[in-house]
Design a protein around this nucleic acid. Sequence first.
DNA 1: AATTATTATCGTAATATTGCGATATTAAAA
DNA 2: TTTTAATATCGCAATATTACGATAATAATT
Lengths: 110, 110
Amino acid sequence: MGLTKSEIFTDEQNRLASLFKVFGHPARVAILQYIINQKACICNDLVDELGLAQATISQHLKELKSIGIIQGTIEGKSVCYCIDEKLWKQIQEEFNAFFNQEVKVISCCS
Amino acid sequence: MGLTKSEIFTDEQNRLASLFKVFGHPARVAILQYIINQKACICNDLVDELGLAQATISQHLKELKSIGIIQGTIEGKSVCYCIDEKLWKQIQEEFNAFFNQEVKVISCCS
DNA sequence: AATTATTATCGTAATATTGCGATATTAAAA
DNA sequence: TTTTAATATCGCAATATTACGATAATAATT
């Protein structure tokens, strides 16, 4: 086992979970925050900034790219990674749609 | 390796990532949605509802309990799991605080 | 063309997660 | 008190994730 049974869940559930999952590692949270603060980014800066090897950071960047939340454009010798503003807001909205479902408490737990 | 280097990240980064991680599995998303729709819940219902073994569901419930997002109260032979409304809203706010950081795009990627 | 700098990919080791059967545990019901 | 029902925990196998060194790929610089 160790294999998530995606086929038994709805597309929405799989979609939401896969998004949450990408944000579910402190290195990726840190990378996003760093890009936001710098207003731009080069992978090599991250190697100095975070205490992770270059290969590891490149791997995390790949996962962030996989959902499209960041995109890289080649800038001479290096790559400039930026956050996709539109998708950033859209994902926030998807998360909010999930959290805005009404949670009504029944007597049993209150 | 395979061990996340938590010590190199800030408490906030670790906190956020650990929250996201719990939501990062479709079974746990499904469980939360089910509890919300039912307005209450018993684990055994979930075994019928989702296509997962009882042991597996119990494990996912444990992870949800670990961050306090659900709580169980014993109801006779079974356990009634409910969502902690306050924490639900608080986590939503924590996520929003993260997403509300201003993402300013620089020329290089636009 | 050779060198240098930056990033990506490969291969691998260590650890984590997912899933489930088997077996406790707990509490009501018979 | 035995049985039954519901949930939790244990132990294990399969797969995924994290991390990193080594190496490849790419593009500017010399």
